[in-house]
């Protein structure tokens, strides 16, 4: 998945009234007290059986639960009219920080109705360039306004010496990269004053200089950074196929006990390679892997991604409904003692 697939380059849509209720930003709005947890560490919560889709008021939590979808400009008009269940929304914050106009107005409208979390694509947490402090100020302001409980980005680099490749590029799986990246994730969490989780990316080549497996690398980074894992199940499958590994073993090798959120998506075959393009329905093996992941980590919020060849909102919600059914089935019977040993003891 590349940044180029995720950003707004669109042109005018019908106007939405600008709505902003003037609420003061609140870091933590009751419920879970992240302040007493390490960076990015969220407790498992059992499914409480309540409806998932209630529009929130100023007193309710912004915590996402169940299955959500990405907020994409192609759906701005449809989501205003949508009467189906939309659990929560995930945005690409780069499309809103220092931007205005219709997209920001639509986001504010949505944020009054659903929990919204932000999933960045450009921070280059593993990269060599200093974190962009000006951008982080704007990002934190946006997260505060959304009352986003945490922030997620990718375990990768994207920028070198000011040149941005607009992609999620893999690091060498080395000790040096672990220390470098973990320190920057801690710095990021400090700047944003909220937990951070990093996503296991899809990678098509193992970079020279590595000394460990992907699972060892991701585990080492999140443990040293004391942050969360955004577990991308499709990436696990794509990587396993491309590198001729067993996806279930690849899943188990990740630090599942750190999982704060799950991503699921479709992919496409290009020659001998599987590309993580978020442009297709999930295939059955990925659905099965998703259920296995949920059984391991418990009912953490899950995001159905569809970012290229985006169909009508109803089609995306059909796919989200299928994920929601799996999520509810697992959540109804899950307890930490049910989690596989790899998930509890990693």
């Amino acid at each position: 998945m590349s940044h180029a697939d995720l950003v707004h380059r669109g042109l005018p849509h019908g106007g939405l009234p600008q709505r902003h209720d003037g609420r003061l930003p609140q870091r933590h709005d009751g419920g879970l007290s992240h302040g007493r947890l390490p960076h990015g560490r969220l407790p498992h919560r059992r499914y409480d059986g309540r409806g998932l889709i209630q529009p929130r008021s100023s007193m309710t939590t912004t915590q996402p639960t169940g299955v959500g979808i990405g907020l994409r400009r192609e759906h701005f008009a449809a989501i205003e009219q949508c009467e189906r269940r939309v659990g929560w929304l995930e945005i690409i914050p780069e499309n809103y920080v220092a931007h205005g106009g219709h997209a920001l107005a639509n986001l504010r409208w949505c944020a009054e109705r659903w929990p919204v979390v932000a999933h960045g694509v450009s921070l280059s947490v593993g990269g060599p360039d200093p974190l962009d402090e000006d951008y982080l100020v704007g990002l934190r302001r946006l997260l505060d306004e959304l009352r986003a409980p945490f922030y997620t980005d990718h375990l990768c680099y994207a920028t070198i010496g000011g040149v941005n490749f607009y992609d999620l590029l893999p690091l060498p799986f080395s000790e040096e990269a672990v220390h470098h990246t973990a320190a920057r994730i801690r710095q990021l969490a400090d700047r944003l004053e909220r937990p951070v989780a990093v996503e296991n990316i899809s990678y098509y080549a193992t970079m020279p200089g590595g000394t460990m497996s992907e699972g060892q690398f991701v585990s080492a980074v999140v443990e040293e950074a004391d942050c969360g894992l955004l577990l991308d199940v499709n990436n696990v499958y794509v990587n396993a196929q491309n590198h001729r590994e067993d996806p279930r073993a690849s899943l188990a090798a990740l630090p599942l006990h750190r999982t704060m959120q799950i991503h699921i998506a479709g992919h496409v075959k290009e020659g001998e390679r599987i590309i993580d393009n978020h442009g297709r329905p999930l295939i059955e093996p990925v659905w099965a892997l998703y259920e296995q992941a949920l059984q391991a980590v418990g009912p953490v919020p899950t995001l159905l991604e569809w970012d290229t060849d985006i169909p009508a909102l109803d089609r995306v919600l059909d796919e989200a409904d299928r994920a929601q059914a799996i999520w509810e089935r697992v959540a109804s019977s899950w307890s930490p003692s049910h989690a596989p040993r790899t998930a509890r003891s990693a």
Binding site: A4, V7, R9, S122, D132, V163, N164, F165, Y166
Partner: peptide, 9 residues
């Protein structure tokens, strides 16, 4: 290509 947002390119 420079700039955080791809549009900058």
């Amino acid at each position: 290509p420079a700039g955080r947002h791809p549009n900058c390119f």
